[in-house]
Amino acid sequence: MAQLYFYYSAMNAGKSTSLLQSAYNYQERGMTVAIYTAALDNRYGLGKVSSRIGLTMDAHIFNAGFNFTGHVQQLKTAGRLDCVLIDEAQFLSKAQVRQLTDIVDELNVPVLAFGLRTDFLGETFAGSQALLAWADKLIELKTICHCGRKANFVVRLDANGNAATAGSQVQIGGNESYVSMCRQHFKQLVW
């Protein structure tokens, strides 16, 4: 029976690497996967899922109006589809997460979604909030703060390297813009 999985973490915990490894595992066994990534994040090219360790795979892109159920149904009708993998799942809408539950429940295709739990102010993204509520399995991927504790928050840095405490929820960036920290250090800088 298919299930909806949400793999979540702060930045630099290996979410994209885990997604790419999962895709490879399915493909190695002769199975077919559909990989999706957000159109918002094109740092490594549009329609690419890339990890910091150099792994890359092509992906379908989604935006706010993308219909996952329709697209997956088309793929399944055209041939075998064994798994759906989604990178940058925090950018999903609540309606799109509902579509993912339909893919699992009605099409019997497992969905593995990978994303951030919270933004730079410690607030959940809409996609993450819905996934935390509706996923069958929640799996935390861990990374560490500079102090050695588990990092479960992300601090956004401004142009001067200081912690940002206001701004748009979505700002695409990597290590130049964000640092993963434990709650104690996050609170010292942001709260």
Rank of each mutant, 00 (worst) to 15 (best):
I35S: 00
Y36G: 01
N42Q: 11
R43L: 09
K48V: 10
V49L: 04
R52K: 14
I53D: 07
G54T: 03
L55D: 03
L55Y: 04
M57Y: 01
M57I: 01
A59K: 01
A59G: 05
G65V: 00
H71C: 09
V72I: 15
V72F: 09
L75Q: 15
A78R: 14
A78W: 07
G79A: 11
G79C: 12
L81F: 12
V84D: 03
Q90W: 05
Q90H: 14
Q90D: 05
F91V: 02
L92T: 03
S93R: 11
S93L: 10
S93V: 02
K94R: 15
Q96E: 06
Q99K: 11
D102V: 14
D102G: 04
E106N: 15
L107R: 05
N108I: 07
N108T: 14
N108Q: 14
A113W: 02
D119F: 12
L121Y: 03
G122C: 12
S128I: 04
Q129I: 05
A130G: 09
L131S: 02
L132C: 06
L132Y: 03
W134E: 14
A135V: 02
D136M: 12
E140W: 11
L141R: 10
K142C: 04
I144V: 13
I144E: 02
I144K: 11
H146E: 13
R149V: 00
K150V: 12
N152F: 01
N152H: 08
G161N: 08
G161C: 04
G161L: 00
A164W: 01
T165N: 11
G167S: 15
Q169T: 14
V170S: 12
Q171G: 12
I172F: 08
G173V: 08
